[in-house]
Design a binder for these strands. Structure first.
Length: 676
DNA sequence: GCGGATCAG
DNA sequence: ATGGCTGATCCGC
């Protein structure tokens, strides 16, 4: 498909050419952007859909930014390709190839011998919930006399959350902007059909999800739930302990059929299931017979390899739009291609990604540890494994300090509440700012203190946002108008984990202070003055003592800054206690705290120095390279070209593959082998 | 450690 | 005119 470049006149050539450019790349962007779903019967043509989306998107800020991002990833692909060729293309030491093959053999050998893993995935969950609700309330699931299934319906307004199958025929997908979805339906139906929007009702969905869950629990009490509409089961135990009436072994496929029938009958919700030797394979299979169907992948290498062979890479969980494009650039579309180029991927991608893709190419999941590593505790025990917590909000663009501050305050309030509820404290704060132009910035600061109170978080977040503001205002290509603010806290304190002697010491202090040393999360303890408000007696402040020292180690501290390791800290603690000079534990702790504060300040100064140096370097670069971003980029490109040429010459002289790089890859592969 | 990107649901 | 939110991970620097 080609955009109509012929329709262009001759005038104003340069501008229109760049428009064509954008359009070409943009439509490219759309073709790949269609997502993981299957194309179904009766759908409108992809081209017609793309054309409408393209026209609706027009010159919107959002779309422009998408194109910029797309350009960047294309550039990265180009770099990767040239690097690949520079390093001799598909060429590795035979020993490296042997290692890769050994790894493949291991993955293939380690797959579980039975297909007892089940993934249950609810069909267009939010939409189905709407239908189920009608059933429960005895109302008709119709709109103007027509059953909802017969007309295009979505859940969500500004942003589509779910669409029914009729709407999907018009190219309406989740995560699509509402107004584009409307336009698709209206235009493709020649104005005869209008897209119906239903309101989202998260509470009801959660209730229905719990209902489904309780049924599935009868089959596997340890099932895992990743989201409201996805369940992971292991039926091994169920199959081993269940027999049919005549005493024969039950068939897993029949069990799943019955299970789904029960969900449908009791919850009025249809779902699809995958049955496979591993949960990742089951996840892929659950998509195979959607909606209201199931797919059984028999165990055994032959079966799995045959299934994978045909599989589009994009169906691999973890391979998204961009990765697919990367792979396609190297001629890799299916898992068969992936397997065929298994040696190449270790030269193309970094270790984690390469290992992941190699494993995926043979469906090599389920070899023990990885089956559990995906464990999550959605809706059950809580958030033990949680690594971060965040809130972000979109609003109509603001720019005044006061408005920004208010928005930020709102976000921090919410975050503080959530953290308190979950009993979390973290020492890294990240602020996220999205400009009206959809350009995103994030700035973070790792502190020494574990925080969970809105005021504390707000203070840091505000500094970070101000930093972004200064950076943005210093640039002439950006405008300080923001449409989103977000705050994230991570680097949580380790709770209940051991607790060294320092912690115990502080616990004692805490008890003496009459605040309990347990680590409970009480609200803000009001003290006299800001600096005094440091919660000396709270044991949670303690864990980071060694963390801080570690950080210091990394940062090349000035000579005159004392750096102590854990032991010395402890020593000084007990010494002071023996001294009797600090009869009052609190006083001593306060002194210690002050010193840490001082160190933190030094630490920050150090960081700032680094930042300034970085800036200077940037400025010098700009001064030397002339002015304007374009010139700079051109220069960089030229430099790279030169380097490439030089590199190519050098390689030719060497006449062999890059042994050093190969050795490194060997090591990577060996590490992967050792993995189990 | 930091910041940008990607992915999933 | 209208284009989300939460949490995780990887990579390059």
């Amino acid at each position: 498909m080609k955009p109509s470049s012929s329709s262009l006149g001759d005038g104003d050539k340069s501008k229109k050419e760049s428009d064509v450019d954008v359009t070409t790349r943009a439509s490219n962007l759309l073709v790949y952007g269609s997502g993981k779903g299957n194309q179904q019967q009766g759908s409108y043509s992809k081209d017609a859909i793309s054309a409408i989306i393209l026209r609706c998107s027009g010159n919107s800020d959002y779309f422009r930014q998408q194109v910029v991002k797309d350009d960047k990833s294309n550039e990265r692909i180009k770099e990767m390709k040239s690097k690949f060729e520079r390093e001799g293309g598909s060429c590795l030491c035979s020993s490296t190839m042997q290692s890769i093959d050994a790894l493949v053999d291991k993955y293939r050998g380690n797959r579980p011998k039975e297909s007892n893993k089940i993934v249950v995935d609810m069909d267009s969950f939010y939409y189905s919930c709407a239908l189920a609700r009608h059933k429960e309330e005895g109302t008709e699931p119709t709109h103007q006399g027509v059953h909802l299934n017969q007309i295009p319906v979505v859940v969500g307004g500004g942003m589509i959350l779910t669409s029914n199958y009729e709407a999907r025929k018009y190219g309406v997908r989740s995560a699509m902007a509402g107004f584009i979805a409307d336009q698709l339906v209206t235009e493709l139906s020649n104005g005869k059909v209008k897209l119906l929007h239903l309101k989202s009702d998260h509470k009801y969905y959660a209730a229905k999800s719990a209902q489904v869950r309780s049924i599935l629990m009868e089959y596997d009490p340890n099932l895992k739930q990743y989201s409201l509409d996805e369940f992971y089961l292991d039926l091994t135990a169920y199959l081993a302990t269940t027999t049919t009436n005549d005493g024969s072994v039950v068939d897993v496929q029949e069990v799943v059929e019955k299970m789904r029938a029960r969900v449908l009958a009791e919850c009025f919700l249809s779902c699809s299931a995958g049955i496979a030797p591993s949960s990742v394979l089951a996840k892929i299979c659950s998509d195979w017979k959607k909606p209201n169907g199931q797919f059984y992948l028999p165990p055994g290498d032959e079966s799995v390899m045959a299934f994978m062979r045909e599989l589009d890479c994009r169906k691999i969980p973890g391979v998204g739009r961009v990765t697919q494009k990367f792979l396609a650039a190297f001629g890799i579309d299916t898992c068969a291609h992936l397997f065929g180029k298994r040696y190449d991927i270790f030269k193309i991608f970094k270790e984690k990604t390469a290992g992941f893709l190699l494993r995926a190419s043979v469906g090599g999941w389920g070899g023990g540890e990885d089956e559990d590593s995906t464990a999550s505790s959605f809706g059950s025990t809580g958030d033990q494994g949680q690594k971060g917590i965040s809130i972000e909000r979109t609003f109509s663009a603001v720019w005044k300090r006061e408005d920004v501050r208010n928005m930020l305050e709102h976000v921090c309030d919410k975050l503080g509440e959530n953290m308190e509820r979950k009993g979390l404290r973290g020492r890294r704060i990240t602020a996220k700012v999205k400009l009206a132009s959809y350009v995103v910035f994030s700035r973070s600061k790792t502190g020494r203190m574990y925080m969970n109170e809105k005021e504390e978080i707000l203070k840091v977040a505000d500094e970070l946002v101000e930093r972004v503001r200064k950076e943005v205002e210093a640039r002439d290509d950006l405008e300080w108008k923001i449409r989103l603010l977000g705050v994230r806290v991570d680097e949580f304190e380790v709770k209940g984990g051991g607790g060294g002697s320092i912690e115990k010491f502080f616990k004692k202090v805490g008890e003496k202070e009459g605040r309990g040393g347990g680590g409970e999360k009480e609200g803000a303890v009001e003290m006299g003055d800001e600096e005094e408000a440091v919660e000396v007696g709270d044991d949670v402040e303690v864990v980071e003592v060694d963390d801080y020292v570690e950080v210091e180690d990394d940062v090349e501290v000035e000579d005159d800054v004392e750096v102590e390791d854990d032991e010395e800290v402890m020593l000084s603690l007990s010494q002071s206690q023996r001294d009797g000079e600090h009869d009052d534990d609190w006083k001593f702790a306060k002194a210690l705290q002050d010193r840490y504060d001082e160190e933190q300040k030094q630490f920050e100064q150090q960081m700032n120095k680094g930042r300034e140096k970085e800036k200077e370097r940037e400025e010098r670069k700009e001064a030397g390279g002339g002015r304007g971003k374009l010139t700079d980029e051109q220069l960089a490109r030229r430099l790279q070209k030169e380097e490439e040429m030089w590199d190519r010459g050098r390689r030719r002289k060497e006449k062999t593959v890059n042994k050093a790089g190969d050795a490194k890859r060997q090591k990577t592969i060996l590490d992967l082998m050792k993995g189990k």
